[in-house]
Design a protein around this nucleic acid. Structure first.
Lengths: 134, 134
DNA sequence: AGTAAGTTTGTAATCATTACAAATATATTA
DNA sequence: TAATATATTTGTAATGATTACAAACTTACT
């Protein structure tokens, strides 16, 4: 995709075959995948793909700001190509991860006088509308 | 401390010597320590303390709800005995972790119709008032 | 085409976390 | 109090995810 290629280039990421395909994957499939999910999904069509490449690529993406790391769980890091301000909800029952639109104006009411906030990460947990008891 | 002992008991945590001291430590020192910090701080006064015990104890604390795990960084889990609704700010320069008072009413504006929210975790990153450029 | 620079790959090393069983401490019962 | 059962702690070994590294490969440049 020309669109993705230009986007990566304009953010200082040289679009190799692997990087482009990985970026396309996380941009198209909004499942907030882990490294493992990305690797297992792409290794079929790219048989020589190395898991090290997936690690390297996502580290590069995050450092260049074209993807975000979501630390909602101790045990796994999930990645998201959606750069807009939004939060995430994880269902304790089915494990699904949902996007949440947020209103963060006036969220912070105390504690950061004269601080410079650059990133917001809002993680919620509970039960989704399917898993919710009763 | 009798106070801590009763608090743990009332939450289903039998207050052994180790558990009580670890709880007292995270409750008194509001530095949001990692497992490593807890271990290295207490191993002097409790020479036989095992790191496994620190892992086990904090896992127990979190499961019983007497402490919270803060996933603000990929590389480390920090623990907090403050159960009140508040967020955390991590300074990208000095690494300091600060408490932030929040107003989370009306935070979620879309995406969770009929969901049951049980936990909020708000993580901010940027530069603190000391490290802030200019 | 030939060279240089950058990227990918596979393996080996590292490091945090967990599993496990023995040792210790605590609680219970007689 | 002693004996027994239960729970907790400890140290070591195993696990598993992530990283380091050097060789192979690809791409860009002359």
């Amino acid at each position: 995709m020309e669109k993705y290629s230009n986007f990566l280039l304009s953010n200082g990421v040289k679009p190799s075959v692997q990087r482009l395909r990985i970026y396309e994957f996380i941009h198209t499939n909004r499942i907030h995948p882990t490294i493992e999910m990305i690797y297992s999904n792409l290794s079929h069509e790219m048989p020589t793909l190395s898991k090290t490449t997936v690690y390297n690529t996502l580290k590069l993406f995050v450092s260049k700001g074209v993807a975000k790391a979501i630390n909602i769980e101790d045990t796994e890091i999930r990645y998201d190509a959606d750069l807009s301000t939004h939060g995430h909800f994880k269902c304790k029952s089915c494990g699904g991860l949902f996007d949440v639109m947020l209103k963060i104006d006036n969220l912070v009411i105390e504690g950061l006088d004269n601080f410079k906030i650059e990133e917001y990460q809002v993680n919620l947990k509970g039960y989704c509308n399917v898993c919710k008891p009763n």
